[in-house]
Computed example of a mutant assay.
Amino acid sequence: EEREKILSHIDDVEQAGDIIDLLKYDEDTAGGLMGTEMIVVNENWSMPECIRQMRMQAEDMDEVYYVYVVDNDDRLKGTLPLKKLITHPSVSKIKHVMEDDPVAVKADTPIDEVALDFEKYDLVAMPVVDSIGRLLGRITVDDVMDQVRDSNERDYQLASGLTHDVESDDKLFAQTKARLPWLLIGMIGGLCNSFILGKFEGGFVVDPALALFIPLIGGTGGNVGTQSSAIVVQGLANGSLDIKKSTQQLLKELGVGLLNGGIIALLVFIYNYFTIGHGHEVTTFAVSISLFCAVMFASVFGTFVPLTLEKLKIDPALATGPFISITNDIIGMLIYMSISSWLIIALH
Rank of each mutant, 00 (worst) to 15 (best):
I6Q: 14
L7S: 03
L7R: 04
D11R: 14
I19M: 02
K24N: 12
K24E: 10
Y25Q: 12
A30W: 01
E37C: 09
M38C: 04
I39E: 01
V40Y: 07
V40N: 05
N42P: 06
S46G: 08
M47F: 07
E49I: 12
R52E: 15
M56W: 12
M56A: 14
Q57T: 03
A58K: 15
E59I: 14
E59C: 09
D62V: 07
D62P: 04
D62A: 13
Y66V: 04
Y66W: 12
V69P: 01
V70S: 05
N72E: 15
K77W: 00
G78Y: 01
P81E: 09
K84Y: 13
L85N: 03
S90I: 12
S90C: 10
V91S: 14
K93Y: 12
I94K: 04
K95W: 05
V97T: 08
V103Y: 04
A104H: 10
A104K: 15
D108F: 06
T109W: 00
I111R: 12
D112R: 11
E113N: 12
M126E: 08
G133N: 09
V144F: 00
V144S: 02
Q147P: 05
V148G: 00
D150L: 13
N152Y: 15
L158H: 05
S160L: 11
H164F: 15
E167W: 09
D170G: 09
A174D: 14
L180S: 10
G186M: 01
G189P: 00
C192H: 06
C192A: 15
I196G: 09
L197G: 09
K199R: 15
D207T: 14
F213S: 02
G219S: 11
T220C: 11
T220V: 10
G221L: 06
G221R: 06
G221S: 06
T226N: 15
I231R: 06
V233T: 07
N238S: 11
G239S: 04
K244I: 08
K245C: 11
K245S: 14
K252P: 05
G257Q: 02
L259Y: 10
A265C: 11
L267S: 13
I270W: 10
I276Q: 03
E281W: 10
T283K: 01
T284Y: 02
A286H: 08
A286Y: 05
S288E: 03
C293Y: 12
A294K: 10
V295H: 01
F301P: 04
G302H: 03
G302T: 09
T303R: 06
D315A: 03
I326P: 00
I330D: 08
G332T: 05
Y336H: 04
Y336R: 07
I339N: 02
S340N: 10
I345G: 12
I345P: 08
A346N: 13
